Each structure stands twice: as structure tokens, then as C-alpha cells.
Computed example of a mutant assay.
Amino acid sequence: MNDTPIRPPQGASARQARLRDALRENLKRRKLQARGRADQPKDPGDDAGIVQDIDIGKADDAT
């Protein structure tokens, strides 16, 4: 048996290196974004763009 690992062709290892580097940079960027969001005060209406309900019953009382 041969204990030497099977190496992928040179092009495949270069691709893996590019992907590894891109994923690392992406992770760093996401961590910075998460830290930035954690520093900001939380606005309850900001999460999903949900607007508070208007009480329609009060509009009927005005007429």
C-alpha cells in the first residue's frame, strides 16, 4: 500500500485556495457587520419593516 496522499491536480488546489481565502474574507466581513449591528440601539419596528397596527375602532367613533 502507498501511504502518500492523492493530490488533486494543480488547478483544483489553486481553486480550493481561492475559495478558502474568499470564505475567510466573507466570514471576517460578516463578523464586522454583526458587531456593528450589536453596537446600534435596537428599534423594535426595524426588524421586518412591520408597521404598528392602527386602531380602526377609534376612527369609527369620530363619525
Rank of each mutant, 00 (worst) to 15 (best):
N2C: 12
N2D: 07
N2A: 10
D3S: 12
D3N: 08
T4H: 00
T4Q: 08
P5W: 00
I6P: 02
R7G: 05
R7C: 06
R7N: 07
P8N: 11
P8V: 04
P8F: 03
Q10T: 05
A12W: 01
A12N: 04
A12D: 10
A14V: 09
R15T: 13
R15D: 13
Q16G: 14
Q16C: 07
Q16T: 06
A17C: 12
A17L: 13
A17E: 15
A17M: 12
A17D: 08
R18V: 02
R18D: 05
R18W: 05
L19Q: 11
R20K: 08
L23A: 15
L23H: 09
N26G: 04
N26K: 10
L27V: 03
K28V: 14
K28S: 03
K28E: 09
K28N: 04
K28Q: 10
K28I: 09
R29I: 00
R30K: 09
R30M: 01
K31E: 00
L32H: 10
L32Y: 05
Q33L: 12
R35A: 12
R35K: 10
R35D: 09
G36V: 02
G36K: 12
G36W: 11
A38N: 05
D39K: 14
D39T: 08
D39Q: 10
Q40F: 02
P41W: 03
P41K: 01
P41Q: 02
P41S: 02
D43Y: 06
D43V: 15
P44V: 05
P44K: 08
P44Q: 15
P44C: 01
G45E: 09
D46P: 00
D47T: 07
D47G: 06
D47W: 08
A48K: 06
A48W: 10
G49Y: 02
I50M: 15
I50Q: 04
V51D: 03
V51P: 10
Q52I: 00
Q52A: 07
D53R: 09
D53M: 06
I54R: 01
I54G: 07
I54Q: 09
I56D: 02
G57S: 14
G57E: 14
K58Q: 15
K58M: 11
A59N: 11
D60M: 11
D61E: 05
D61L: 04
D61N: 00
A62Y: 12
T63R: 13
